[in-house]
Design a binder for these strands. Structure first.
Lengths: 239, 239
DNA sequence: TATCTTTATTAAGTCATACATAATAATTTA
DNA sequence: TAAATTATTATGTATGACTTAATAAAGATA
């Protein structure tokens, strides 16, 4: 593998910090060389020498790549390319306590948008077994008298299954990341109006539509199912 | 500010790397102390002494926080808390050339889902001026004879405006991040079947609905508008 | 010979120290 | 008093040494 042109490229770069340059060059390099997952990259000391910078800088740059999920490094073996994990870092900052209120609210909205919009994906991928499982989940729906936590768990089981059906791993990961935030916003005083306890389209109703309906019907039903959330959203801020 | 309990907490932690522990402890600390944006955190040497680790480790941990957008550090002034940028790191790895094909396709789907699902947000926030601007954008729609790039630009202008109307900055950022990937997938051979050039609901049609219709109508219209994309998606993989 | 165990090697992880750089504060000078 | 100069300070970078764990090599045992 030829890393010799790297230094020139780097010196051509501009104002930003040294680590920034090295990082950018490494990223560029990896994609230029079309390195596949599993391929090894030179060791830190070699890179340091090649780029004419200290090992400290190389390490900081590689740390960033590691955070992006672009590489993994192990002792003795060195670093190898991996398929980047889009949500790795993001999920760390996805913490209700360190995000500002506006962002929290926007994330709340994000989930609603996703669940309404994914109707077509669901209908395209759904199988007989999926429907059976959904029915099974619905049948375990907790009574109104039961503890709050049971309801949350049930919500997660049902809606999580929907994401699973889409077959879209990225979306599923995204949802898993959103969950705690959603729950936090739901229970915090962030959204003014308490949810009316009126019942809209139920989980069972949604499953019926999945079995016999169409994406259009499902979208509207899901919108209705989420009405309480929307109501709180639109009640707590002027457009 | 009292950072003295930090060391004990840290020593209670387990197997992971030293930097991992320090990172976790710093994050935990910042949220426990409810530090506000702009508040300064102790300097590297102080933290190093307090935690009983080298400055190297502190620096690596802080570098991670910086990547998450949780802190910003400037020379002499030290580091201060910032509101985390959820997409900062993500957008770096959102590179068509380093993502695997499955993920690329999933991101493609992601956009479609969002644009169908965000109907309610649009209707809630939209103003007279927004509609005027949309009409202005539509009026500049390039002819079929014009260059491919004009069409792309027009697409971005129109759909970007829709995201803007939602008032959801998070979603807007997300979309900006998705754009290059979407374009890449659209033009690459990733999706088998070339788009049929049949015309479905046009941009103008969508604007009409925004003016006189309802979220339900808009969702269905948008679904139809995106039909070419869906067709390619569903043609290139078995469910 | 084949397999298990021990030892050596290697590259990342951690540490300590020194110096460079740039932003701020303090001081001098006009 | 205000501008210009100098000192200070915290991060940024460099260097060399040491630690640790994974791998490879060598050796022992069957």
């Amino acid at each position: 593998m030829d890393f010799t042109t790297l230094r020139d490229d780097m010196e051509a770069a501009d104002t930003s910090s040294l680590v920034d340059k090295v990082e950018a060059n490494l990223v560029r390099l990896l994609q230029e060389r079309k390195l596949k997952v599993g391929d090894a990259i030179p060791k830190e000391t070699e890179l340091a020498e090649l780029l004419g910078v200290s090992r400290t800088v190389i390490r900081e740059a590689m740390l960033r790549l590691r955070m992006m999920g672009m590489i993994e490094s192990k002792k003795k073996k060195g670093a190898v390319i991996t398929s980047p994990d889009l949500f790795g870092v993001m999920s760390k900052s996805m913490n209700p306590h360190i995000l500002d209120q506006d962002t929290l609210k926007e994330i709340f909205e994000f989930r609603l948008v996703l669940e309404i919009g994914m109707a077509d994906l669901i209908f395209y991928h759904i199988t007989r077994e999926d429907i059976e499982e959904l029915k099974r989940i619905v049948s375990k729906e907790p009574q109104a008298t039961q503890h709050h936590l049971f309801h949350i768990e049930h919500e997660i089981a049902f809606h999580g299954k929907l994401y699973e059906i889409t077959g879209n791993e990225t979306m599923k990961k995204f949802q898993r990341m959103l969950l705690p935030v959603f729950d936090y916003v739901h229970n915090s005083g962030l959204l003014k109006k308490p949810p009316s306890l009126k019942k809209f389209v139920s989980h069972k109703g949604l499953v019926d539509i999945l079995e016999n309906g169409s994406p259009e019907l499902f979208r509207n039903a899901m919108r209705n199912h989420l009405e309480n959330h929307f109501a709180r959203l639109f009640a707590s801020s002027e457009p």
